Simulated assay, not measured.
Amino acid sequence: MSYTVNASILLTELPILERPAAANAAGFNAVEFWWPFPIAVPAADEVDAFVSAVQDAGVQLTGLNFFAGDMPAGDRGLVSWTGRQDEFRANVDVVVGIAERLGTRAFNALYGNRIEGVEPRAQDDLAVENLAIAARAVARIGGVVLLEPLSGAPAYPLTTAADALAVIQRLKDEHGIENVKLLADFYHLAVNGDDVPAVIAGHAADFGHIQIADAPGRSEPGTGDLPLAQWIADAQAGGYAGYIGLEYKATQNDPFAWIRA
């Protein structure tokens, strides 16, 4: 099994720049991050420090989110956020620059919440335009943009695999974009009531990435009642060959004890 540690939700007792080395010390050779800076375009020395932390740790950065706004305050992405398209597009350039240095090829673009007073269609049109720009940018380095349904964010419009797949199909139909893929977070899909086995059966070979956490609680596998091992096996049997992202909230001193058990 090829796991990648989401070092934005795990190892949070450590400063961000110490987490890649901690993941390596725990036995992993791959990490992924949400956007690790508070703004879309950080200073060059901040970017250099992040890149060095990953390189010095000897781990692969397998995934990186585009800037998603103020996540602790409830923001969930700029892709569909009217009025912030210049900010998103400037961030794309920074993301690609980091990826070129670290060999990263998967990039999660959180869609963004619905905005009061703005027509949903206008937001969706902007989202497709922004996703097309991001997809073309990462295509130059062989990358894919990931589109993720989320739970726990009432204003976020993509809650099922079908929601995200409809956007992906629109990108294909209107822009000829082929490198935007579904991020199948089994936790989010399950708690939103999606039919996860059906999603796997129909789309596993086309998943851009898988992430896992158990439910209820979004904690380590084995703390809830989701059949994560079976779902992973079914996805792999269906053609998925990528990493499994560990994106859960640790409840134990050793957040990876379940793997060794």
Rank of each mutant, 00 (worst) to 15 (best):
S2K: 15
T4E: 14
T4P: 14
A7D: 08
L10A: 08
L11V: 02
T12S: 05
T12K: 11
E13C: 04
E13T: 13
R19F: 02
P20F: 00
P20N: 02
A21S: 10
A21I: 05
A22L: 03
N29T: 09
A30M: 09
A30P: 01
V31C: 05
V31K: 03
F33C: 05
F33R: 03
F33Y: 15
W35G: 03
P36W: 11
F37Q: 11
F37P: 04
F37N: 11
P42I: 13
P42W: 11
A49R: 15
Q55A: 12
Q55W: 03
T62V: 10
G63Q: 12
G63E: 11
A68T: 07
D70V: 01
M71K: 13
P72Y: 01
A73H: 02
G74C: 06
D75V: 09
D75W: 08
V79T: 14
S80E: 04
S80Q: 08
R84F: 10
Q85I: 01
A90G: 15
A90K: 14
N91M: 09
V92Y: 01
V95P: 00
G97Y: 08
I98L: 07
R101D: 02
A106N: 11
F107L: 06
F107G: 05
N108H: 03
L110S: 14
Y111L: 12
N113I: 06
G117Y: 00
V118T: 09
E119Q: 12
P120Q: 09
R121I: 08
D125R: 10
A127D: 02
A127V: 05
V128Q: 08
V128H: 00
E129A: 13
A137R: 06
I141W: 01
G143A: 11
V144D: 14
V145D: 07
L146P: 09
E148S: 09
P149E: 01
L150W: 00
S151V: 11
G152K: 10
A153R: 14
A155E: 13
P157F: 08
T159K: 15
T160K: 13
T160F: 14
D163W: 02
V167I: 15
I168A: 00
Q169A: 15
R170W: 02
R170G: 04
E174P: 00
H175M: 03
E178T: 12
N179I: 07
K181S: 11
L182S: 02
A184W: 00
F186K: 00
D194C: 06
A198S: 14
V199E: 04
H203P: 00
A205G: 13
F207E: 12
A213H: 08
G217N: 03
P221T: 05
G224N: 06
D225E: 13
D225R: 09
A229C: 03
W231D: 04
Q236W: 00
Q236S: 02
A237F: 05
G238V: 04
G239E: 10
G239S: 10
Y240T: 07
I244G: 07
D254C: 05
P255W: 08
F256Q: 03
F256L: 01
F256V: 07
